[in-house]
């Protein structure tokens, strides 16, 4: 398989995630779409790593995964606080910075 196929698959996954991020109103769903976009980028990195015959891309993917885990943990904690304060997970209801 050549690089273009992987890049197109990666872009389709990214666009699906981006569309979901725009459409969805539930905070958790938006987070899932965010993870989808990160994975699409990771796939592009690994495809370039194979194409350029270098290991650097895989290391970047490793670091991206760590950042994704950290981001998920902090984001989910913020969601718990949001739900505790507002009683809902809809982003439309969380439209004031301070209550």
């Amino acid at each position: 398989m050549d690089l273009t196929h992987y890049l197109i698959l990666s872009m389709l996954l990214f666009l699906t995630g981006a569309a979901g991020f725009i459409i969805k109103k539930n905070v958790i769903s938006m987070f899932l779409c965010l993870e989808l976009m990160l994975n699409a980028v990771n796939l592009a990195f690994v495809a370039f790593s194979k194409h350029l015959n270098q290991v650097n891309g895989q290391i970047i993917v490793f670091l991206v995964m760590v950042v994704a885990a950290v981001e998920a943990a902090v984001g989910l904690a913020i969601m718990i606080v949001l739900y505790r304060n507002r009683g809902t997970l809809s982003v439309d209801d969380a439209d004031t910075m301070k209550w």
Binding site: L9, L12, L13, T16, G17, A19, G20, I23, K24, N26, I28, S29, L32, C33, L36
Partner: peptide, 14 residues
């Protein structure tokens, strides 16, 4: 992967 990604967006339940 693509079908599952579309399903992520299309599902109503989280």
């Amino acid at each position: 992967a693509l079908l599952a990604a579309i399903s992520v967006v299309a599902q109503k339940r989280v």
